[in-house]
Amino acid sequence: MKKRNSIFAEILLAFWASLIILPLIWIVYVSLKTNYEFYLNPWALPESLQFENYINAIITLNLGPVFLNTLYFVFGGLIVGVAVNTLAAYILTRLEWKGKKFILGLIMLSLFLPGINILVPQYVLAVFFKLNNSLTGLILLINVALSAFDILLMSSFMRSIPKELEESARIDGATMWVIFWKIIFPLSMPGIITISIFRFLNLYNDFINPFIYLTDPSKHTVAVSVYYANTVLRYTSNYVTLFAAIVVSLVPTLVIYAIFQKRVVAGATIGAVKG
């Protein structure tokens, strides 16, 4: 469109942008105040920057171990999930074999099912297989299963790899694994990065699953930790520490988003609505 926006339009856009930025900025500068300053005037800027709030947050939230738990939970899950689904995408979309259609149908079934009703039975089954109250168990539960979304995304990325490459490799006597590892895997890298980013965000932000399955506080992830910290710190009216904790938990998400923002935005629309 050639026509430029009116001032009104730009103001509207700026307004919405401020609705997003302002709360986040508010959290950051409150996290650098003292509780006294906070109660005096929640909106004033801090006199001096209280970085010790962050130290307090790290101590109260037991952030050292919690951060390690989260690291394990997220990256363990990431590696497992991406490995599983990339291989599965290759097998299900680039190879021809008997029973493929049936299995593909089974997987696409998950897109039709609401998912909300499996919460309870899934929990019962997980307990039965002793996957509960264990970070490793939870990693397996969430990430080993095939994901329709990931497979769909990967297949669209894998489509552009020419079949001739596979064929000539096969003629040269390469095994299936070599074909996958040396040809398909490197050429699918954009897709792999995309599903990795999404899986990272979903795992890092996941609250419900760790909340349900990880009853032992020593196994908590960041999301659950912040939730429980809310009750503790609110009770003691120690809001500034709570705000600091929130800022700390936000950092990884925002960093990943800042770096990979284009891919996140592109990937979000691929899996989404078509006109």
Partner: peptide, 15 residues
């Protein structure tokens, strides 16, 4: 992966 999917994501619907 397929087993995990069927056991923990499809079967719970029946369960």
């Amino acid at each position: 992966p397929l087993t995990f999917y069927v056991v923990f994501y499809l079967f719970p619907n029946i369960l």
